[in-house]
């Protein structure tokens, strides 16, 4: 098991190098730092001095890959590639284009992101499993058919409509909770209810339908038929045999997204003005802050790979038949 994890982590390194090279290419080769400076300072009527000043302030004035001007190992380290890309491997994200410490920002903003993402995941999971079990229990009847149709209808509605509609209905018309905002500590609760409810509801369509197919897959297997033939009640069959086995794909599906929860939800956070990592990313994109986007790309890939490793480990825990080698 341990050797396997070590190998998987080692396998992750070339992937991260690939991600790093790709972002470096996109951000520094396709468009030179001069282009970025011009975009920030306005294309017309910008002096070369202003561009140089902008670049020096942000450390973009060095050569890309190889610095002729200095000696020794500094030839390689005093370059944009080393300072902006290689340092990411040490989780040193540097400063954003307007001079803020990115690592500090990320630590600050992780908590609100998790405060939304974890309850949304749990509430959604509970609703989806219950709904899917209900459809599986009544499979082939009108309850099942209308449930599936409801799922397809819910799936066909854009997440934006759920958010705008939910804010309007619950926040503005019924005045049940504040429309947006955030607070620290326990006061955050009243701000979290609406995004969590909307986040969970918008996932019902796709989630329940998928879980239903997991349940039906198990319900058609031989051991379930045997259990039924023994005279076990349908509800017992469903809970004891079907649910337990269908939990394998459900749990692994959840585990793989767990690390990504840190990144938060782009839409929910920015609509509800929650100072998490999702809204941080959106703000960075809108302000065209390349340093933050670069940092988030790297962080995102690290978390994605972490999710893949976790899911392999989760398989051995929930399914004893799987052995890692």
């Amino acid at each position: 098991m341990f050797a396997y994890i070590v190998r998987r982590v080692a396998y992750a390194i070339p992937i991260l190098i690939g991600v790093n090279l790709l972002t470096f290419y996109l951000f520094f080769v396709v468009n030179s730092p001069d282009d970025m400076a011009r975009l920030h300072l306005g294309v017309k009527r910008v002096t070369p001095e202003a561009i140089d000043k902008w670049k020096v302030e942000r450390g973009y004035d060095k050569p890309l890959l190889y610095n002729e001007a200095v000696s020794g190992s500094a030839k390689l380290t005093h370059t944009i590639f080393f300072e902006k890309s290689v340092k990411l491997f040490a989780f040193d994200f540097g400063h954003s284009d307007d001079g803020r410490d990115i690592s500090h920002d990320i630590q600050q903003r992780m908590k609100p992101s998790l405060a939304i993402a974890i309850p949304t995941l749990l509430v959604g999971l509970l609703i989806n499993i219950t709904f899917a079990m209900l459809m599986a229990f009544f499979r082939g009847t009108y309850v099942d058919v209308s449930g599936v149709i409801l799922c397809v209808v819910l799936m066909s509605i854009s997440a934006m409509f759920y958010i705008i509609g939910g804010q309007f209905l619950l926040g503005k018309l019924l005045r049940l909770m504040p429309i947006s905002g955030y607070d620290t500590g326990l006061d955050a609760f009243k701000f979290l209810v609406l995004p969590v409810v909307i986040g969970a509801v918008s996932g019902i369509g796709a989630g329940s339908r998928m879980y239903r197919s997991f349940f039906l897959e198990e319900a058609n297997k031989d051991f379930v038929r045997t259990a039924r033939a023994k005279g076990l009640k349908e509800s017992l069959v469903l809970f004891r045999h079907v649910l337990k086995n269908a939990m394998i794909p459900i749990v692994t599906g959840v585990v793989v997204v767990l690390p990504m929860l840190f990144l938060g939800s782009l839409l929910l956070e920015s609509f509800f003005a929650i100072p998490g990592l999702g809204s941080y990313t959106i703000d960075a994109i809108n302000r065209q802050d390349f340093a933050i986007v670069r940092a988030m790309v790297f962080l995102g890939s690290v978390l994605y790979i972490l999710g893949l490793i976790l899911v392999d480990m989760a398989y051995t825990v929930v399914d004893p038949r799987v052995r890692l080698s």
């Binding site: 996109l26 951000f27 790309v297 994605y304």
Partner: peptide
């Protein structure tokens, strides 16, 4: 492994 939205954002910014 690159989050889709971020890759799209990076490319569109470029």
């Amino acid at each position: 492994s690159i989050p889709g939205v971020l890759l799209i954002a990076a490319a569109i910014l470029m």
